[in-house]
Write a protein that binds this DNA or RNA. Structure first.
Lengths: 192, 192
DNA sequence: ACCTGAACACCGTTCAAGT
DNA sequence: ACCTGAACACCGTTCAAGT
């Protein structure tokens, strides 16, 4: 019969606890401050216990970023309305996700995780979140797939750039009233 | 009469040597790999010699990023032609700078340098580089200054986002032929 | 199978001391 | 005024050992 004490030698689901702990730390601490040891401490395990579940710190960060892409895809896919309006709403939802989770978003796209190509789960989650944008752009412009893909890159660039500038505080000096609303970002695919 | 030996106790212009050394290291090493100690080693001084010239590692990185913004402003300001074409050229030159100096660009905008607002030289250089864009947008659209400023943010977002996606390799899976040329980014301010 | 403890090479930073 | 040397607390990672 298993001991029910709160401090057991075996954690139970340490992998999940580490990812969730890292996500919690990212709510208040910058990626640079997020050390593998601090995540282990938060989970109540020794400094190298994570190595039973992740081959390196980067592998843990990849799992965290992957969860970030899943959340982002959920948020953007939830945009409703007729195609043109839905796209604008999606852009706004995207920017909102980024500004509400600035450090997570920075981890997902920033130079913190350099070798992200090596983590296939992360690549798949990133592709899936991009697919949501491509689909919405295609629906809003009803053009051929190739053109839709190019337009999606333009739209994604605009939204991503706006989000990054906002997160890094480069838009902070402007009074909010003079900022273009994120919905305007889709103007990039308006002319044809 | 000063000793002409190559290894003198006093460096001469260590500050400049550190900034240039860091820029050199950024040509091949990621910002995460760029340690203060490695910059000191490259300059041939002890690990803490930099502290006579910079109060912290962040202060050195700020000086490096500042030089990056000066170079970026030089590159974008060099765009020629009639206003509309000049703006498109400027966008392309901007993206070229970012992709040719990916790690420097990442340092300038990424989350590596968290407290950049505290370095006024850096803020001034960043503002100056943005002013180039605002001026070009205003000339291309000849509208009121407030509108031009908002449009400049849109254009900057698109170009910045495209550059970031390209640097991080998120555009790498697309065949180059299907990528939108950077000149198209200015379409974001085309409709009115 | 999963975790701990001690150790290694590194890092940013500080302080006393050298020239 | 500018730099060195030794030290501190931290980090990612490894290896042997514990349960």
């Amino acid at each position: 019969m298993p001991r029910r004490s709160t401090k057991r030698y075996h954690h139970g689901d340490l992998r999940k606890a580490l990812v969730e702990g890292a996500l919690r730390l990212l709510e208040t601490r910058s990626p640079a401050e997020l050390s593998l040891r601090s995540v282990a401490r938060l989970a109540g395990v020794s400094p190298n216990a994570p190595y039973r579940h992740f081959e390196s710190k980067d592998a843990l960060l990849a799992a965290v970023a992957e969860e970030g892409f899943r959340r982002l895809a959920t948020v953007t896919a939830a945009a409703k309305g007729p195609p043109r309006k839905r796209l604008a709403q999606m852009g706004a939802a995207y920017v909102r996700f980024a500004t509400e989770n600035p450090r997570l978003y920075g981890l997902m796209f920033g130079p913190v995780l350099s070798g992200w190509e090596r983590y296939e789960g992360l690549v798949a989650a990133g592709d899936a979140s991009f697919a949501v944008v491509v689909e919405a752009v295609a629906a809003a412009t009803n053009t051929d797939p190739k053109r839709a893909s190019r337009d999606a890159i333009l739209a994604w660039s605009a939204v991503h750039g706006y989000a990054m500038l906002a997160i890094d505080g480069h838009l902070g000096s402007c009074p909010a009233k003079e900022l273009p609303p994120p919905e305007e970002l889709v103007r990039i695919i308006d002319t044809r």
